[in-house]
Nucleic acid binder design. Structure first.
Lengths: 348, 348
DNA sequence: CTGAAAGCGCTTACAG
DNA sequence: CTGAAAGCGCTTACAG
């Protein structure tokens, strides 16, 4: 009865087709597919079912399964922009973690469609995802909707009152960067910070201030400027720093994208990095080693950030708090953009 | 009857809940939501339904809807790697196009999970997406599966026998790059090509050869080298070019990532770009303007590529052929990395 | 060891 | 103008 298989595949193969071909009930096929431990079935029957599935190219209809089980087997991740390599690493970690749990990850960007979180939630509807990771950008109002909904969600790389977030140890990154500059002999160390509202930026700034204080160094107000996390913003901000009455000998840049612009601006101003100015930035990207000079950076565990966020959302219900700082190491990667200050004396 | 709304929202709001609250049948609510033109209903009823939906925060269950309509209202896009900015632009275009059609786009990477297309299709199951865009990388064997399946799909930025692809005019890009170098007076023009199997690379190389031939310039074999599309590969390949008996005065680099490495290698070899060597590459990225010197590039309509691919897949059935070269303009973006050759005479 | 049955939440042709 | 009913393709507690 299983030998008269028609070679022309039906347009759509369902559980029923498999069951009929195999001469068993749909429920048996379902249990075989899902490895139901409660199912006791003769090994040859199980194998026959598997063969037929393979033969017919059957793949379960996820809509039907989701409807039945109330699970989508899918997580969602909203990023502001794919072009930012920081997010590329976060996505990678989240994807891996989802894969290991047998789930998929669907990523969308708010940049593509000028997609508000509101809009995104509507598009998602109910039952499309079992959890949501929100990376970057504001989404203030729509969070209320999220709270009311039944999907667990988490902020990635930023905090908000309400404590549903996973972040990195940005303060430590700031301290390490500045300690590196101090150890080289720098004393006039500027900070090219990120956007005022960005809390990654304020945490890194806190690290900067802490390290300066610890070393007994005074931070002049005009040695701290803000920029957005873009090359253009970084370039403009560096120009401002160079206008200070007594310009810095080193700059701790809050973000690698800004640093690309800052490096460019330094060159344009006729400075030689690192001879005239040392530069160090947060986030180690493949690009950093190919700039001229190679950029000294602080490597953050971004992939682990994505992974942890996904795992939290997968594990925790919609009402349980999530407030985690990823514990993986933050590392200093020394390249050519930092050196002893030209006229600088060794410290003390 | 609609005034005794309980303030505590049910855990899960369904069509039924809305219908009961509004005092109408489920089918009416469904039609209101979907703007069924066949539905004639009193305006006040329609409004009441809308109010209740808003009030209860009802969002349709996509699994149920998909099961019923056999449509997922979602497209899928598989990229090899988010870290490559080329894909960021393609994704953006595809997302926008999907949004305009009222669809979502779910993006996944093969890098994250070491995800084969096979594996990806299994994860997708049936009914998760209404069409699939495949960007980059091989997927040879699994395409057979795709052909057998009912989802329309398309290759993005590469061809394959079987003609389901949308690509850019890479040959034109190659010609433009070389013509620019020739117009500056270069005659010994090398080509730092991409991977041998990459067909973007072979099309760009064809453009290089065509432009050289048209100008009556001879291409010495050791002025053409292959590299992968990475900075490290580009650096190694440039080193090889510099070893030629008579090194080139200009290099057309097949890809911007390789060019970053090539620029680095040129500096490391003690060459000054563009004085000693001119460099031009395909793909204009924000980064290109912030390298030192700013990189002269050929801007390709990558966003449009993503958009067209999505539109094709949305429009065409699984059996209709897709073979399109995006018609949008390919542009030369002149920056500082190209100049007249130092010892070069003006042409002829 | 295997099957029958209910039901997840929708949409839509049809009846009134 | 509105409602009743069937059914999309699964899973799972239950009966035998």
């Amino acid at each position: 009865m299983s030998s008269d298989v028609s070679p022309a595949r039906p347009v759509k193969v369902t559980l029923n087709d498999v069951a009929m071909q195999a001469g068993v009930d749909r429920s048996v096929v379902s249990r075989v597919i899902n490895n139901d431990p409660k199912l006791s079935v003769r090994p040859e029957t199980r194998q026959r079912v598997r063969d037929i599935i393979e033969q017919l190219g059957y793949r379960p209809n996820v809509a039907a399964r989701s409807l039945r089980t109330s699970r989508a087997y899918m997580f969602g991740l909203l990023v502001p922009d794919y072009a930012n390599p920081v997010f590329a690493e976060i996505i990678k970690g989240a994807e891996r973690a989802a894969g290991e749990l047998g789930y998929g990850l669907m990523t969308a960007s708010s940049a593509g469609v000028r997609l508000s979180l509101d809009h995104y939630l509507t598009l998602l509807g109910q039952g499309r995802v079992d959890g949501l990771l929100l990376a970057g950008e504001d989404s203030g109002h729509a969070l209320a909707q999220l709270r009311a909904s039944q999907v667990p969600w988490v902020l990635v790389n930023r905090t908000l009152e309400g404590s549903r977030y996973v972040i990195l140890d940005d303060e430590r990154a700031g301290r390490m960067a500045v300690e590196h500059l101090i150890s080289l002999g720098h004393r006039r160390i500027a900070h090219l910070a990120g956007p005022e509202q960005a809390d990654t930026s304020s945490r890194r700034r806190a690290g900067y201030l802490a390290a300066m204080r610890t070393a007994g160094l005074w931070v002049e107000p005009d040695l701290m400027v803000h920029a957005d996390y873009t090359p253009a913003g970084g370039a403009a901000a560096l120009d401002r720093l160079l206008c200070a009455p007594r310009p810095p000998t080193a700059v701790f840049v809050s973000n690698v994208a800004s640093a690309v612009g800052a490096l460019h601006a330094a060159h344009a101003a006729g400075l030689c990095v690192p001879r005239d100015l040392s530069l160090i930035a947060v986030h180690d990207m493949p690009l950093a080693s190919h700039l001229v000079p190679g950029l000294t950076t602080i490597r953050m565990p971004l992939e682990e950030l994505g992974r942890r966020a996904l795992e939290m959302v997968a594990k925790l219900g919609p009402d349980e708090p999530i407030a985690e700082v990823v514990a993986d190491p933050v590392e200093l990667v020394v390249r050519e953009s930092t050196a002893r200050p030209m006229s600088g004396l060794p410290q003390s």
